[in-house]
Amino acid sequence: MRYIMTIVWAILIGAAVSYVLTSMGGEPFVLSEALILSGIFVIAAFILGEGVLREKSN
């Protein structure tokens, strides 16, 4: 379930960031580019969550 929610949140945040950046730049919003950015967010979240930020058990 946490993987599904990570993907959902990454898509929402990626789309919002892409929309804001394209609006600030005066460019049209392109959904495929927003999904690519969301994919990058998903990969980064999985890498950080499973490896870098995981607490070590004693």
Rank of each mutant, 00 (worst) to 15 (best):
M1A: 09
M1Y: 06
R2E: 15
I4K: 13
I4V: 05
M5E: 13
M5R: 14
M5Y: 13
T6R: 15
I7W: 12
I7T: 09
I7C: 03
V8D: 01
W9G: 04
A10R: 02
A10Q: 04
A10K: 01
A10W: 03
A10S: 15
A10I: 06
I11W: 02
I11G: 00
I11D: 09
I11L: 10
L12P: 00
L12G: 03
L12V: 14
G14I: 12
A15P: 01
V17F: 14
V17H: 07
S18T: 13
S18G: 04
S18Y: 12
S18C: 04
Y19M: 08
Y19E: 11
L21Q: 08
T22R: 10
S23F: 13
S23Q: 14
S23P: 05
S23R: 11
S23W: 15
S23N: 14
M24W: 06
M24Y: 09
G25W: 13
G25C: 02
P28N: 05
P28K: 03
P28A: 00
P28E: 06
P28D: 09
F29I: 07
L31K: 08
E33G: 11
E33Y: 15
A34R: 01
I36H: 05
L37S: 07
L37N: 10
L37Q: 07
L37G: 13
S38R: 11
S38F: 10
S38Y: 05
G39M: 04
F41P: 08
V42L: 07
V42I: 14
V42H: 00
I43Q: 06
I43P: 01
I43F: 12
I43E: 00
A45D: 09
F46Y: 02
I47P: 07
I47K: 14
L48S: 07
L48I: 12
L48Q: 15
L48A: 06
G49I: 01
E50F: 15
V52K: 07
V52F: 11
L53R: 01
L53P: 01
E55Y: 06
E55L: 12
E55H: 02
E55T: 12
K56T: 06
